[in-house]
Design a protein around this nucleic acid. Structure first.
Lengths: 258, 258
DNA sequence: ACCTGTGAAGATTTTCACAGCA
DNA sequence: TGCTGTGAAAATCTTCACAGGT
């Protein structure tokens, strides 16, 4: 897609384009961005759609179509220049300015998330931590003070939090969500196994580990219908399967360490 | 769907049906199952598709269609009996016998996952822990000994592990994955931000937190194109939005605690 | 010669709307 | 009457295949 004649002024005029990127593509664009970052570090200057497709496990045509939505400039006969493409993706995904993240619930999982370095490095600084447990309120994690949940409205607004992460037990999640919303947070990533009720202008994404395992279990069950006795020992012929960011596959972590 | 005349003998004859359940439906069936469990605890005997749809945030017609894939018996004019439906779902999702889980990488995130009680309760006992870090190998987490990754083939086979969870840094993930596969593990849930290469008979699901945040960031960016100045203070009229288990929404955690 | 960008075909998924049973 | 089960339409997403630059 060459630059449309109207709509200049750097990065705007994307308006129309941005609005119409299919949901499914957005998820993959984020994946491409991360992968390109790695390729870039390894010194790659250009990638073809076939190469990038192989690494990300996506169909090459699909990849090209995805990239066409953000109006990137590939070079026919050559491929994509990594640096400009990364830039373009960051533009389109809204990663040109950092997004402050508030994390609510610093128990088991929340503590791990708070300690995870990967967010900061990707432009998502964890800026506030909250909990209700008196044993946790007042401690510092990675240099950040854990505050009481009741402070959410004040602190989140003060610190310009745009993304809330909920890692509380299920029953607490809706109340926490309401507090975040009342503080003006419009994007929420929740690990609590409940459906959150939010105003229409708030975006929620949910990561449900138990459900993930159940889906896997289903596939075991299905397989065992065909091959009842098999349990161990597998040939290993590395097929390029399971395209990341595919249906119902949520991608994650960027390096939560062993 | 009334019972087809052929194919009896309890729970088999599902073969044909199981094979053909759309991927998208499988993910939601797992969600219904969890939700029904909660309704059941609250004493509900029957649910209508409208009720269950409201709670899970799914379209009622879609829900009915999903359930029709497992051949469940709803009662026209009444709804579904919760108990039998739960049973049927467990059957179909392969949750009638427990699946032993091995967790590789007990660093930041892995440690949290190992300590998470929700897996055991849902029929996914964490049966083996692995790492390479000498500081971690030998410790116990929740009563389970952390063993060296090189022991994976032996121990996983011994303990009948069917599901592997990978919570290592990206670079280590492929090697770990290979070890799991060589031990006969056919289902893998990975948090490492790399595309795993596996034989065709192995199922991989990926949870990528960094990508999740980027997707949210995109939605912030898109919104700000329309309402440039808005930052704080939101009306709160609880719309029933964001159907769980919807596109690209992975559900999770069942209660990783604050 | 090679690789992008994209119309058009194909597959899957969602939604509608209503027939049919309790 | 009320709610399930399901054909069929609509929307969305994926894949093919090739025209068109470089």
């Amino acid at each position: 897609m060459t630059v449309p004649p109207e709509a200049e002024r750097e990065g705007v005029g994307d308006v129309a384009r941005l609005r119409s990127i299919p949901e499914a593509s957005v998820a993959r664009l984020a994946l491409y961005l991360r992968t390109l970052g790695e390729l870039s570090e390894q010194g790659a200057e250009t990638v073809s759609s076939d190469e990038l497709a192989a690494v990300t496990g996506v169909n090459p045509a699909k990849l090209r179509k995805d990239l066409s939505f953000i109006g990137s400039y590939g070079i026919r006969g050559v491929g994509y220049e990594v640096r400009p493409l990364v830039h373009q993706l960051e533009q389109s995904l809204g990663l040109n300015h950092r997004q402050a993240v508030a994390l609510v619930g610093v128990g088991n999982l929340g503590h791990a998330l708070a300690g995870y370095g990967g967010f900061d490095g990707r432009g998502f600084p964890v800026t506030a931590l909250f909990d209700v447990d008196p044993d946790l309120v007042g401690i510092h994690i990675n240099g950040i003070l854990v505050e009481h949940v009741r402070e959410i409205p004040r602190i989140a607004a003060e610190r310009g939090v745009t993304i809330g992460m909920i890692a509380t037990p299920g029953p607490a999640a809706q109340a926490v969500c309401d507090l975040l919303v009342s503080a003006g947070v419009q994007c929420i990533l929740t690990f609590a196994p409940v459906v959150l009720q939010v105003p229409a202008d708030v975006e929620v994404r949910k990561v449900d580990l138990a459900v993930e395992l159940q889906i896997l279990a289903f596939h075991v069950a299905r397989r065992n219908l065909d091959h009842p006795g098999v349990t161990t020992g597998t040939t290993n012929g590395h097929a390029l399967v399971n395209g990341a960011a595919d249906n119902r596959t949520v991608n994650g972590s960027g390096g939560i360490h062993s």
